[in-house]
Amino acid sequence: MERREHYDPEDIENLLQERSYDELLEEERAYVLRHISGRAEYEAMRQLLGQVREDDRRREPITVEPEIRDTIMAAFRANQRPQWRIWLNSIGGLLWPKELSAMWNENRLLRPALAFASLALLIVAGVWMIQSATNNKESAQVAELKKEEPAKLKVAEPSVPATENQSVFEPAPPPTQQPAGSRKDVGITTGATRSFNEVEMDAAPVSGNAQPLEVAADESVAEKKDGNLDERREGERAPITTDAVTRQSAAGATQSATHVVTEEELTVNTSLANATGKVTKAVLKEKAERSAGISTTLSANPELLALIGAGW
């Protein structure tokens, strides 16, 4: 009780709750009287405090409607829900009524889900019709192109001999790429060189595959011996080359490192060379002679030398 002397005036609340004025100890009463005028005020405060507590006990608690709780919980759920889900739900609610039976009312066409589904169906049907019409047009165009292709090929096939008759000022046909499947092996540069090297390295061919190449090379050497590359020879060159390459392609399918020159590329190269006027007979002869001086093996095939000098 001695501790009460150190209490602040506001701690009188404890005394008011616990004891009446008459029950206060001497020290407590002295302490109370330093802040309160006297017994009447102390008792009035004590009475009021008791009445407040009593009133609080008597008071019926106020009840909250469950709707308020539902509203608050809905607010919490809405806050926790991702925005995209809210958006989807709003769309879903718009399209799809809660009661499924409502989908089959009399005004079913007014239901957004059915209306949008019908609209989507119409759009899909329209797109399909447009696409099918476009495809028909494209297929007709493709058919026309297919008709043109053989004509082109016919022109391209005798390209090497034909270049002789082409004018120098005639523009070279643009290089066109053919699909790999339609590629026709016509000539070989590196592959042929390799076979020539083999010839150089090996006096006699080891495999039967190299045999045709050797033959072709021998033919070229024979031509070289004649010392003339006349037009007749050149005219004959194409079939020879084609034969050689056909044999080469059959034989050298395993040579993965070689570059296969297509008939198209060969045509382009020759045409380019003719167009620029770089290939002349004299030049061909000079080059053939020069290469004959450098390497006897390369000189064995002056046609390839001409091609290498002109285009490659």
């Binding site: 602040d8 005036p9 506001e10 701690d11 009188i12 609340e13 008011l16 802040h35 309160i36 009447a40 005020e41 008792e43 009035a44 405060m45 009475q47 009021l48 405090l49 009445q51």
Partner: peptide
């Protein structure tokens, strides 16, 4: 906490002064 105690004390004192008509002892006295 001292501020709270002080507020409580003076509020109670003021209310008791203003509502003494509800104090039966005060009427008796």
């Amino acid at each position: 906490e001292g501020t709270v105690k002080s507020r409580l004390f003076y509020t109670l004192k003021k209310l008791a002064e203003r509502m003494k008509e509800f104090n039966p002892n005060a009427v008796y006295h």
